[in-house]
Simulated assay, not measured.
Amino acid sequence: MIPYERKEKIIELLTSSDIMKIEDLQIQLAVVSLSTLRRDLKELAQENKVELLSGGGVKLASPIREVSILEKSSLNKREKEYIAKLASQKVTDGDTIYIDSGSTCFLLLNYLKDKKIHIITTNTDVLSINEEVAYDVTLLGGTYNPMISSLFGPLTEENIKQFIFDKSFLGGNGIDPKFGVTTPNLAEASKKKLVIEHSKQSFVLCDSQKFYKVSNVKAVDLEDITIISDKTDKNLAKLTTLISK
């Protein structure tokens, strides 16, 4: 059985089951050795066709959906705090920076309280800050998406064009060697592209759970950004700078 046929058979078997053990797949593909099967699964995972699970399970990969800011805030809290703290170390007094929507980007604000900087943002959660801070904030106008606490659209993009950012800090729903930074939302992807065009340095804040995940819309190429995450990854680090400590 040639590699293409093996992979097609694997997809066919997974279609009829939510999750299968690798050993069970090997029983169904008796002519295929376990080492060959593991290699095929690894390649399928890199192609975002299957998802390898801890404990030796495997399932079909599905596109990342957009989840609400409340859901995002409850996920991987420790990792997000770590990433936000790392990101804050890239900011110096006098900077003009852009902060994107997203739970990790919002956490970054907590680590910038004493910085004498100008923050430009489309993250409407900034309105919940009710304490004295050293930075100035400009909230850009636009169409409001309450699900992700974000402003977007033509008005937002026209406002972005008025600024040159020393640094921009962006969110993303998936990071992949082939597809770059992806998001479920075309308007958010367009906004991220424009911000990068107007930034001297661009960082994507992304916990490692999003590595090798792909959403529906490509936002930016890895070569255009620096990743700040809780863990490193040798494949991604070959394509862009990846900061994890």
Results as ranks from 00 to 15, higher is better:
Ser215Ile: 08
Gln209Asn: 15
Leu75Asn: 13
Phe169Gln: 07
Ile175Asp: 07
Thr241Val: 11
Lys200Gln: 15
Gly142Glu: 07
Glu12Phe: 08
Asn76Met: 14
Ile11Leu: 15
Lys167Asp: 05
Gln28Tyr: 06
Asn235Lys: 11
Ile27Thr: 07
Asn159Lys: 09
Leu239Glu: 10
Gly171Tyr: 02
Phe163Cys: 08
Lys218Asn: 12
Phe152Glu: 05
Asn145Asp: 12
Asn123Trp: 05
Ser101Ala: 14
Glu81Gln: 08
Leu205His: 07
Ile83Cys: 10
Ile97Phe: 13
Leu236Gly: 01
Glu131Val: 05
Asn173Phe: 02
Gly174Trp: 05
Phe152Arg: 01
Lys80Gln: 14
Gly174Cys: 08
Lys72Gln: 15
Val58Ser: 03
Ile175Pro: 05
Ile148Pro: 13
Glu8Phe: 01
Gly180Thr: 10
Ile175Ala: 06
Leu139His: 06
Glu79Met: 10
Ser33Asp: 01
Ile69Trp: 03
Phe163Met: 11
Asp100Ala: 10
Ser68Arg: 07
Ile97Ser: 06
Ile69Leu: 13
Ser202Glu: 02
Asp24Ala: 03
Thr92Ile: 06
Leu29His: 02
Asn159Ala: 08
Glu158Phe: 11
Lys59Glu: 07
Phe169Pro: 05
Ser149Lys: 01
Arg6Gln: 15
Leu75Met: 15
Lys21Leu: 13
Asp136Phe: 04
Lys80Cys: 11
Leu170Val: 13
Leu75Arg: 12
Glu197Gly: 10
Ser202Asp: 03
Leu44Ile: 06
Lys21His: 14
Asp93Leu: 11
Pro3Lys: 03
Asp176Tyr: 00
Lys72Ile: 03
Val133Thr: 10
Thr96Gly: 12
Met147Pro: 00
Leu44Gly: 03
Thr182Ile: 09
Lys193Val: 04
Val220Leu: 13
Lys218Ala: 11
Leu139Tyr: 06
Leu14His: 09
Asp40Met: 00
Tyr82Ile: 14
Leu109Phe: 10
Leu25Tyr: 04
Ile117Asn: 00
Ile148Asp: 05
Phe106Glu: 02
Ile228Leu: 11
Ser215Val: 14
Lys191His: 10
Ser168His: 06
Val32Asn: 03
Ile19Met: 09
Leu155Ala: 03
Glu131Leu: 13
Leu236Arg: 03
Arg6Tyr: 15
Ser17Thr: 15
Ser149Thr: 09
Ala87Asn: 07
Ile228Phe: 05
Leu44His: 08
Asn185Lys: 06
Lys7Asp: 15
Lys238Trp: 00
Phe203Lys: 04
Tyr82Asp: 13
Ser128Phe: 15
Gly142Ile: 06
Ser190Glu: 10
Leu236Met: 01
Leu14Asp: 04
Ser128Asn: 12
Ile2Phe: 02
Ile120Arg: 01
Gly142Leu: 04
Leu151Glu: 09
Leu70Val: 15
Thr121Cys: 01
Glu81Ala: 13
Phe169Val: 04
Leu37His: 09
Ala84Gly: 07
Leu37Gly: 09
Leu222Tyr: 14
Ile225Val: 15
